[in-house]
Design a protein around this nucleic acid. Structure first.
Length: 712
DNA sequence: GCGATCAGCT
DNA sequence: CACAGCTGATCGC
């Protein structure tokens, strides 16, 4: 939970996500997203009074946040005081001192935060420097590098301070399975259950908070049935969500709530009261999304864990993992960082100890950079690409070194960077309609889940999971121990109707101007993360099993069994759902054979606002990140708060990609074992200085080939 | 009666 | 366990 007090040092007359106490005198308010712990005081009488006297005080937020906020009548008094700002649209606002009439202009830019619908980060630029307030965020590795507006020309903006979501800034959360992997796991579990018959239903035990919508929409889209929810009026202007949820309880996927829902479940009853259909009792399983309940693990685990006869936990996180946080921060490389959250059991100093080394104030004092001709303003070694590395001797021609590493992988010389063309105020630069009129209408060909056997990979006993073992020890005895894994075709086919949703976006955009632009929260660069995340895993520094690439490597007690109560006949057919090392490798292989996705992916973004994200030069080795993108592109699960990508891709050379893969090499395997969370990663880490160096390299996506050569 | 706070519980 | 709440009890206004 956020412990941010509402104000930033640089702009103390602005209040963000806090509306009580000293914030009552703010000149402007900002709300990053619609979660209650970021809305403290927002409907207090004191603030209401303030609004009535101070006519120039407004609340700024994203269009989606405005919509969600005003869907609650308790906040309707804000109606005429909310100014929505489009995402990625730098907008100037005036901070007015109502007593003196003095004005101070600040440029604010909203950047998608990937936390929940409408969630954004705020980038402020003004007389007191550039600061970034992240709100709550879940951004995959490399995503900061894709944010055009965090850059100035071809380098990251000079950012004075970052107010950072540090919810999982704890090595225990070193790695959290990507959103796509979690979704995939849940999807397959749900699918395998509800396809058993019309009376097999799933209850998603989701907290009331916003943030699960993409789960609902993807499940609905993939599996063809709407998700039952208690309320949907808040989505009334969000067709992309609305069309996947329903208040009709006659469906197989439920996310409805009831104060006593857990009790209901024990009585084989859904929270909405359903217990049977046509006189036939329902067969209900519950899936409870949990953030790293998976916590600290010494062994690999699954994104889905069975916790009872008919209950499951699914890994799910609205917040960035430890490594994602560090990647983000090291890329931004601000002078200062302020944690918004102090994880339980930690102190501010503990968190800062992790974050400070990633800041300028620390790194530059520790190891001054060589700045040729005094022209460089920031350390250059941070931004190498693999291709750049080949030209490293060219010390004085550094312009191409300072590149948006992830964003413009190696083609700098081919497609010179053009500064962003965004202008102030309201211009919606995201004309992504053009050139993309062709939407893939093909609905998700229902997944052809070609299960293949895979070896059980984790024969060692998990000794820290009492709950699971206790809860169904006797059940697992009867259940088959086979882990079923998806073959490559699954990943290839997991390419749902994302484009239709995109089409919806367009329709909305084309429509009523008063309706928020949903791409603001469905917009996506891609779904990259896994491999990149893996590549920065602590195993880089250890000698972990290089072939442990199982996503679902779990022992019997952890495996995702699906069984009917009392009836085992079906069990072996649909056992575990998740991806195996083979699947993983298959994905890599498919990456190799299908080719072109990287180009497609990068180019796909070019429609949006960057003329630079062109087709990757085919003769250039791919940076690790690009490889990641490709893989996840093929998994092609929607990235929740951002727009789906088209699936087009131009052919590209298999050989070049082989180069990239081989460069990633064996350590890449760690990337694959996203769920292997070493208990004490720090134990094997190099010293801080070295660490920082490594992280900077990691953050820029250097492949392990490079990295290895620099390891002791 | 309402709001703030806290314990307890997902 | 950890996400982000909700409920109910208590206290003050």
């Amino acid at each position: 939970m956020s412990s941010f007090e509402g104000r930033m040092k640089e702009y103390p007359t602005i209040s963000i996500d806090r509306f009580d106490r000293e914030n009552l005198v703010a000149k402007a308010y900002f709300l990053s997203h619609c979660h209650k712990d970021h809305m403290k005081g927002l409907r207090a009488p004191s603030l209401k009074r303030r609004l009535e006297c101070s006519r120039k005080v407004n609340l700024y937020c994203s269009p989606v946040t405005k919509e969600l906020l005003l869907s609650n009548p308790k906040y309707s008094f804000w109606k005429n005081r909310i100014i929505m700002i489009e995402v990625e649209t730098p907008t100037q606002i005036s901070l007015v001192d109502e007593a003196s009439g003095e004005e101070e202009d600040v440029l604010v830019t909203l950047l998608s935060a990937g936390h929940c619908p409408g969630s954004v980060m705020f980038l402020f630029q003004g007389n007191n420097g550039t600061v970034l307030y992240t709100g709550d965020f879940r951004l995959a590795k490399g995503e900061a590098a894709r944010m055009e507006l965090l850059h100035s020309g071809n380098r990251v903006k000079e950012i004075e301070s970052v107010y950072l979501d540090t919810t999982f800034c704890d090595p225990r959360f070193y790695q959290i399975p990507s959103r796509e992997q979690c979704l995939l796991g849940i999807m397959e579990l749900v699918r395998s259950w509800i396809t058993l018959g019309p009376y097999h239903v799933v209850w998603l035990n989701c907290k009331a908070a916003y943030g699960y919508e993409y789960l609902f929409t993807n499940l609905s889209e993939e599996l063809g049935g709407k998700v039952h929810v208690n309320k949907l009026d808040m989505f009334k202007n969000m067709p992309e969500i609305l069309c996947h949820v329903t208040t009709d309880h006659n469906t197989q996927i439920h996310a409805c709530r009831h104060p006593k829902d857990e009790d209901f479940m024990r009585g084989n009853r859904l929270p909405c009261g359903m217990t049977s259909k046509n006189g036939t009792p329902l067969r209900i399983i519950s899936i409870k999304p949990s953030t790293m309940w998976f916590g600290e693990r010494s062994k690999k685990t699954n994104v889905i864990v069975r916790t009872g006869e008919s209950s499951y936990r699914a890994c799910f996180s609205f917040h960035s993992s430890y490594s994602e946080i560090k990647d983000f921060l090291s890329y931004i490389h601000p002078v200062n960082v302020y944690p918004n959250v102090i994880p339980v059991g930690k102190r501010v100093e503990d968190v800062l100890e992790v974050l400070k080394p990633l800041c300028k104030s620390y790194s530059e004092s520790l190891q001054p950079e060589y700045k040729p001709l005094g022209t460089l303003k920031r350390p250059r070694r941070k931004s190498f690409t693999d291709a750049d590395a080949n030209h490293i001797e060219d010390l004085f021609d550094d312009s191409h070194f300072i590149t948006l590493k992830h964003k413009i992988p190696s083609q700098q010389s081919v497609n010179p960077v053009v500064p962003p063309t965004h202008l102030l105020s309201g211009s919606c630069q995201k004309d992504d309609g053009q050139g993309r009129g062709c939407y893939n209408e093909s609905m998700p060909v229902s997944l052809r889940v070609d299960y293949i056997d895979c070896e059980e990979s984790n024969e060692e006993e998990e000794d820290d999971d009492v709950e699971e073992d206790e809860s169904h020890g006797q059940i697992t005895e009867e259940l088959p121990q086979i882990l079923m894994c998806q073959s490559e075709t699954v990943a290839g086919n997991l390419n749902p109707g994302l484009t239709p949703r995109e089409r919806s976006n367009k329709q909305v955009e084309a429509g009523d101007a008063g309706i928020p632009q949903w791409e603001a929260f469905f917009r996506s660069d891609d779904v990259s993360e896994t491999e990149a995340g893996g590549s920065q895993s602590p195993n880089l520094f250890s000698d972990s099993d290089g072939d442990s690439t199982h996503i679902s490597s779990l022992n019997s007690s952890q495996s995702t069994h699906i069984s009917e109560h009392g009836s085992q006949s079906w069990d072996s057919q649909v056992d575990t759902v998740l991806l195996s090392s083979q699947e993983r490798k298959a994905a890599e292989l498919s990456f190799l054979t299908k080719g072109g996705s990287t180009a497609g992916l990068l180019r796909d973004d070019s429609h949006k606002d960057s003329p630079n994200w062109k087709v990757l030069e085919q003769n250039e080795p791919l940076p690790a990140t690009a490889e990641t993108d490709v893989k996840m592109d093929q998994l092609n699960v929607a990235n929740p708060y951002e727009a789906p990508k088209g699936n087009d891709g131009s052919p590209s050379s298999t050989e070049e990609k082989l180069v990239a893969l081989s460069a990633v090499g064996k350590a890449d395997s760690q990337g694959s074992s996203d769920f292997e969370i070493p208990s004490t990663p720090d134990a094997e880490l190099p010293k801080p200085a070295k660490l920082q160096c490594l992280y900077e390299k990691l953050s820029t996506g250097e492949t392990l080939l490079v990295r290895k050569s620099q390891l002791p």
